[in-house]
Amino acid sequence: MSGTRRKALLKVIILGDSGVGKTSLMNQYVNRRFSNQYKATIGADFLTKDVMIDDRLVTMQIWDTAGQERFQSLGVAFYRGADCCVLAFDVTNAVSFKSLDSWRDEFLIQASPRDPEHFPFVLLGNKIDMEANRAVSAKRHVTMAQSWCAAKGGMPYYEVSAKEAVNVEAAFQAIARDALARESADTSDFPELENNINLNENNRSSSSGGCNC
């Protein structure tokens, strides 16, 4: 019964500092393409992709956002109604990891989801193909990321590379699954009302007699 009522559209939003590879991740997942060229995203834009999750066809609407503050002058109404938020950082860039908190807070404020404590976030550490560039061992930063995720209510963490398409597909599959799980929980919280109130039917009652001015 509830299965038929689920919407088949999942809204996923990717946030993170500029240059961590948000656009690349989306492009790798949706178009299976990668370019080394850096081009700052202006405003926000989305791509859609149809995926099969447990024999069910879902359309993922993935919103890619501008990481640079100067390209964030427009509004973020698209945060509202999101089913999952992907936080991305660059494993070779410490600053991008430290800004994750503020990205998460910004999202929760602007999206104001019903249950902020349990809203599904997913953390992606991108550019693992450039691990050679890392000064500190991979092990240490994995534990750092994992402890951060644990502190935020057990957020799943994936290490990916948009360039080499490592783990991207799997991460987004998991994202879709998470979002879907969240959604079925939501719908059970708000069973549809049986007696709909039709506003248009009642408002003609007083039209008999009287003056119309």
């Binding site: 405003g43 834009d45 989305f46 427009l74 973020v76 109404a77 698209f78 404020i109």
Partner: peptide, 16 residues
């Protein structure tokens, strides 16, 4: 859809 996504929602009140 994109332009609508880039709209604003007043943060100072509860109007959606």
């Amino acid at each position: 859809e994109t332009c609508k996504g880039n709209a604003f929602i007043c943060e100072l009140c509860t109007d959606k």
